[in-house]
Design a binder for these strands. Structure first.
Lengths: 137, 137
DNA sequence: TCTTGACTTAGACAATGTCCAATGTAGGAT
DNA sequence: ATCCTACATTGGACATTGTCTAAGTCAAGA
C-alpha cells in the first residue's frame, strides 16, 4: 500500500488523512466495496470523514487508473483496487458479491474486424453471472 | 411486433393500451433506450401513462425474457429488445451509444472450472468499450 | 352486461450520486 | 519554524433513478 501512496504522491497528490484512509480501506481486501461501504469503513478510523470526500477520492483513484469502477447492475458501483492485473468478474445475482477471476484467453480476439463497425476498442469487460455457493443453497 | 404481443397474450398477459405502447416503443428501433426515454416516447402516444407503469412493464418484459436489461455504466439501465439472438455490446465511452455485435465463440468456455469458485453460472456478458467513429474523429 | 382481479396512477419515499459555498490544511516559500 | 495559499474537506441541498402503496380503473371471461 505504501507503494500506492508513493505513486500518488509522485503524481502531485496532496496526502491527507482522508485520502490515506480511503486508500487503505480499498487495499485491504479482494472484496469490491460500494462507495457507501468504503465510507462506512473509512469512518471507523476517521469518524468525521464526509461522503463527498469519499466520492471525490474514489473518482480520483479511478481517473488515475489505480482503481476500476465496476457497475454490475443497477445498484451502487463497486470499486476494484486490483487494476494492475487483467481479470474478469464473477457476480452473484442474489447477494451482489463480486469475485475476481482470471481469463484463459483474450476476449478481444473473439470480435472479428467486420463486427467492430469502425470503433476503436480500448477495453473489454467480461462478467459471468450466476449464484454464489451460499445463495445457491 | 404483433408476434410479441401474441406471445405475451399467450402467456396470460392482460393486453392494455399502456403495455401495447411500451412494447411498440421498444420494438421500433435498434437503439437501446433508458426507462425514462421509453416513458417519454410512450407518453407521446399515450400522454397519461405513468412512470410506474413503464417500470412495471419493462420489468415484466425482462422477466419474461423478451427484453434484456443492460447496465453500461452507473447511469440508467437500458433495455435491449433484441433478446432472441445471442449478442454482445459495443459501447462508446464518449456519447454512450450502444451497438449490438455478434460473438464468434462461446465466452463461457474461456473460464476454467477451477476459476468458478463454486458459482453456478447462468449468463456471460461481454462489453467492448471504446470510441465510435464519430467520437474518435 | 356484469364482475372481478389484475392493471394503472400519482406521488411519497428510498438509494445513490453530484454540487456548492464555507472552512480547514499540506506542503512549499520565506 | 511560521506563514501562505492553492488545494482539499465538509455538510447539506439537490438531482437522478428506481420502488412502493392505496385507491381508482378496466380487460376479458361468465
Amino acid at each position: 500500500m505504501s507503494d500506492l501512496l508513493e505513486r500518488l504522491r509522485g503524481r502531485g497528490w496532496r496526502l491527507t488523512a482522508q485520502r490515506r484512509v480511503v486508500a487503505e480501506v480499498l487495499d485491504g481486501d479482494h472484496v469490491h466495496y460500494t462507495a457507501d461501504e468504503v465510507h462506512a469503513l473509512a469512518a471507523e478510523r476517521l469518524p468525521e470523514i464526509s461522503r463527498a470526500t469519499v466520492y471525490n477520492t474514489l473518482g480520483e483513484l479511478v481517473s488515475l487508473g489505480e482503481v476500476i469502477e465496476v457497475s454490475t447492475d443497477g445498484r451502487a458501483k463497486r470499486y476494484d483496487p486490483n487494476a494492475h492485473r487483467a481479470h474478469q468478474h464473477l457476480v452473484c445475482g442474489r447477494c451482489g458479491t463480486i469475485r475476481d477471476v482470471h481469463p484463459s484467453g483474450d476476449p478481444l480476439a473473439d470480435l472479428p474486424a467486420q463486427e467492430r463497425f469502425g470503433f476503436s476498442i480500448s477495453t473489454v469487460e467480461v462478467t459471468y453471472r450466476g449464484l454464489c455457493p451460499d445463495c445457491a443453497a
